[in-house]
């Protein structure tokens, strides 16, 4: 079962704890909280990170096959990377960044390799740090089926609460 980080959007308090936890762990934040405000002063926080797509555009776009989808997730081989940045362009969520190897900026002929920076779900950890730290419990590390089930349960409960007599 492919797991990913899901957001219960009605629970996000836009505190950015996930951002800070990720930054603390890896030096740069791979999840970003965007705050969407409505005209009346209400708002919602939306943490955006890699969706761990089943057919990832980033891998489809990669001309060198440095990025590829395997059964247990997206794999990256920095040896093959030519630092072209097509993956960054392809990602529909803006959740991927390319860091130049050696910290240089700009593509150079001598330094053709880059590192893809994206959420890798904290390999080696039981739960990704963003999920573990979320004070509001808005981030969930799960698969789409169980996430959907929880929402369905909640909706089911709501439509029954003022239980109407059978007609």
């Amino acid at each position: 079962m492919t797991k990913a980080v899901y957001v219960n959007l009605s629970h996000c308090i836009a505190c950015k704890a996930c951002e800070l936890a990720c930054e603390r762990e890896y030096g740069e934040a791979r999840v970003r909280v965007e705050v969407v405000l409505n005209g009346a002063g209400g708002g919602v926080g939306v943490p955006v990170s890699c969706r761990q797509c089943e057919t990832p555009f980033c891998a489809l776009a990669c001309p060198e096959n440095a990025l590829g989808r395997e059964v247990d997730g997206l794999k990256f081989d920095s040896g093959l990377c030519s630092d072209c940045g097509l993956c960054v362009l392809a990602c529909p969520f803006g959740a991927i960044e390319l860091k130049k190897a050696g910290g240089g900026s700009g593509t150079s002929f001598l330094n053709l390799s880059g590192t893809v920076v994206r959420c890798e779900l904290c390999p080696g950890k039981e739960t990704p740090v963003c999920v573990a730290t979320c004070p509001a419990g808005a981030l969930v590390y799960t698969d789409c089926e169980s996430f959907g089930k929880n929402i369905r349960r909640g909706k089911g409960k709501k439509c029954l609460k003022p239980s109407p007599a059978p007609l």
Binding site: F57, P92, C144, K149
Partner: peptide, 14 residues
Amino acid sequence: CIGCWACSMVCNYG
């Protein structure tokens, strides 16, 4: 479909 499951995340009915 690219299987990003963003739809399942935003669906209000799951």
